[in-house]
Write a protein that binds this DNA or RNA. Structure first.
Lengths: 137, 137
DNA sequence: CATTTGTGCTTGCAAAATGCAAGTGCAAAT
DNA sequence: ATTTGCACTTGCATTTTGCAAGCACAAATG
């Protein structure tokens, strides 16, 4: 599991060294929603990541052990990306970003509905989704 | 309060549009620790941000209402940056990143001690620090 | 079997962001 | 009156991003 140049001993800084950019957490978001994605699935996301950037981010996320990659069981032409346990551990981070976003931006009913579920019982929500993702590793 | 080009209606994406880079959250981290910082204080941080990047990040964080800036009450030559309520709301995000970092990197005793406090009772910890930061706005 | 389509990338290149070092303008200290 | 401190700004080389096109291999199609 490759590592990356760390700017300091601060855990926040070291975390950002891995996924501190505009795209990595969106890839992780997609995987949390979908449990697994092909390369093309990521390209279809609303934000329209460029294909070379996607390839680059997937590579570093894989190298740092946040996601894993396998060939699609039903077709050698496809791949499947999934979150590792390390990646699933980012769920609380994603949830808190989600909640901050809700407070500060106009968001769709779909997202509101999702967040309503989260806020009923945040800890259980995280525990449940984590468990469900881990079954799928 | 200026806004920034949003890539999509997703709250995660919109949040990252503001502070999704390698430096912004470190600035916010510094402010959470210190409550207020001068320009020079940020430059002294371990990660050694370049001064032009710092100026650029401070500007967008101020424009988006995450931080505020005043002239130092004791010297016109200095400025003071602080978190706004919107910025203080990022505390849960920072804490979760911190915790993820702890799980995945070797960290110093100082950081371990801090996180031990957090984990005793995360919710109260966040509530307390938030309240203390808000008094200081 | 030959050809087309789908999938996961890679490549080339222009534009933007980053990083480093030096400079600037104003305030305050000497 | 001069120097020092502070908050930036500027210039420039390097790196990263974004867009479009291309490519290799698998699978579907005729």
């Amino acid at each position: 599991m490759g590592s990356i140049k760390k700017r300091s001993g601060c855990p926040v800084s070291s975390s950002l060294d891995i996924w501190g950019d505009k795209w990595s957490l969106l890839i992780i978001r997609d995987l949390m929603y979908a449990k697994q994605c092909t390369y093309g699935d990521f390209l279809k996301s609303e934000e329209k990541i460029a294909t070379n950037i996607l390839a680059s981010r997937l590579e570093t996320l894989e190298q740092t052990g946040v996601i894993s990659k396998i060939v699609h069981p039903e077709s050698k032409a496809k791949v499947l990306y999934k979150l590792t346990a390390k990646g699933i551990d980012l769920l609380p981070v994603l949830i808190e970003i989600y909640l901050w976003g809700e407070k500060n931006f106009a968001i769709s009913d779909q997202h509101k509905k999702f967040l309503k579920e989260v806020k009923k019982d945040k800890e259980s929500f995280i525990k449940n989704i984590s468990a469900s993702l881990k079954k799928h590793i």
